[in-house]
Design a binder for these strands. Sequence first.
DNA 1: ACCATTAATGTGTGCGCACACACTTATTTA
DNA 2: TAAATAAGTGTGTGCGCACACATTAATGGT
Lengths: 354, 354
Amino acid sequence: MNKVKKVTIQDVAKYANVSVGTIDRVIHNRGKVSPEKKQKIEEVIQKLNFNPNLLARTLALGNRFQICALIPSAPYSDHYWSIPKSGLEKAETMYKHFGVVVDIFYYQLFDESSFNDQAQKILSQNPDGIILAPLFIHESQLFVRQLEEKAIPYVFIDSDLPGQNSLSYIGPDLEQSAFIAAKLLDSVLEKEGDLLMLHMVKGYENAVALKRIESGFEKFFSNRNDNPDRIHKLTINSTNKEAVFRELTKFYIKNQNIKGVFVTNSKAFLVSDFHLTHELNIKIVGYDLVQENVSHLKSGSIDFLISQSPQQQGMKAVQSLFELFVYKKEPEKIQNVPLDIIIRENVDFYLNFN
Amino acid sequence: MNKVKKVTIQDVAKYANVSVGTIDRVIHNRGKVSPEKKQKIEEVIQKLNFNPNLLARTLALGNRFQICALIPSAPYSDHYWSIPKSGLEKAETMYKHFGVVVDIFYYQLFDESSFNDQAQKILSQNPDGIILAPLFIHESQLFVRQLEEKAIPYVFIDSDLPGQNSLSYIGPDLEQSAFIAAKLLDSVLEKEGDLLMLHMVKGYENAVALKRIESGFEKFFSNRNDNPDRIHKLTINSTNKEAVFRELTKFYIKNQNIKGVFVTNSKAFLVSDFHLTHELNIKIVGYDLVQENVSHLKSGSIDFLISQSPQQQGMKAVQSLFELFVYKKEPEKIQNVPLDIIIRENVDFYLNFN
DNA sequence: ACCATTAATGTGTGCGCACACACTTATTTA
DNA sequence: TAAATAAGTGTGTGCGCACACATTAATGGT
């Protein structure tokens, strides 16, 4: 058994003929060390390849890093937001031994006041770092301003709020994701028929994000010099089934040559439902592995889903903050996650979140 | 600052009116504890939600877990095997604080004797766990037998060796991956033209694996009652460019209606090269994000690559062994990794291995 | 009734580190 | 010249746990 005996601070001390206290001073440059010894010690550290034992350090310091996350609540299991949440939790169990605590606060998806309430609660806790899904632009900006006053670092997940001093944005490249959606739709369409890009919004959505998506989608076709009239856009101000059905009916009656739909949120299953009830053979590309989408994908009524590694987003967010706390390591300002292309045949591999 | 004071063994002791030694006995059931106290203590542990501090435990035990990995060497950077390797290393830095050491041993891809040499070296180290890429079936079986004699747990990555007592297999579902390849090829082919499934082997490959791939590929078309004559198979006993070109020339002259090729190893770029030099417009689906494949994908001469999360394989392997060591937790016997569908538009997101 | 077992419990030490504190010398200052 | 100050060092304690060992209480045999 080759016990790769770890080099300890004691070893360094013995080797350099000083006490551990002096080593400690050098490591943390607290001064009060004669230049000669300092240099000697630094050499010894090099030679012995000494690395402080993070375990012992954490134990001795007893430091706790409180990370607060502010994300939408998942009203039911299998809801989209339960996945980033599971990523946060997974990362917490990973890092909890190093004193990391992740407290998750939830706001209601269409209720800014709940956002503000929770934000204030978080502020009163004086956490060491924040993970924020800034779905409400204005409220998020206000919150972020307060964080900056308190010098609390924060990362965005899921969607970005450019122009802020966030430590990092961890999420999809939206424009590229729409470009991919376009390509996928095109690949199943035999190069003919019209296309619909369908937004469903409730008025609070990030308009910049939608613009990016539109631009990515259109870019694919303009790159090919396609006829721009092929692409239709429809915005429905609701995610309510009846409302969506009503609007879709109206639209499809006027536009009978639609062969493919790109649904720009996670509600592709609603459109799929509509197609099924009206026996329309129209292809669908959507976002996110929410339960309804998955079952429509498996039954073949949705063709592609684009998944933006939601679990990884949660994990990376915690990881980025942890590394900042412990190693003073600044993460990349933008961390784009993989855009997974999901079809019926590979969906199962993406579904197990232990 | 809400210091979420962690519950320690001391707290439990005080609360239960016993000494820490008794708590310790209960936790590790070393016996010698009166039933009443035992029950009392267990209740207190529940009530206070006591969780042993893994840091302190690791520090106190001073245990080191040596994991040896035996994988093919990566002759150049960007080689396929550098990715699982990076996964192993990433996991090591993650778990090194808990005493995990991952020693990687390399064998030459087409040299069984190098495999045996390294295997013996590993055995002489008496490691606590093994990660093995069992590309050489016979030699791997021999190695595994020796591991079992020594009761050293082992996991397979990349390819499975069914019928062995491995702790886990961490890798792709090959059959499904070929099924996906078929679907992708089909989706870009406008439902006509012949298909080629191309093996390149050097005689040492896992025949069972190839059978699985064939079966998955064929299943897709037979599910649709396609004409089986559409599918051609070719096996080239080399990965040498000249040899491959020669054999492909021979084949394409005889089979002029081929519209798509599925390359069953990571050498799709060779076929792509061939198509480019001979100006053939034939679609390609292949495996793995090796550097040459990526550049052909980006230039458009390869259409799809299927990636089998190589980095995750390395990470999960270490993780599985770690959890076995520390938590006595047996992993799933088969851990299939995601089969990522890679196209030009999303490849970049999969390429950064910090 | 005595000592020898055995069961049940408590105590002390070290893992590697950070940090407060104590201790030396040399250098000022009153 | 004594005392205060500073620069450079060493020592001791605790973080939470595991484990060897010391101690006490309960039971047995003769």
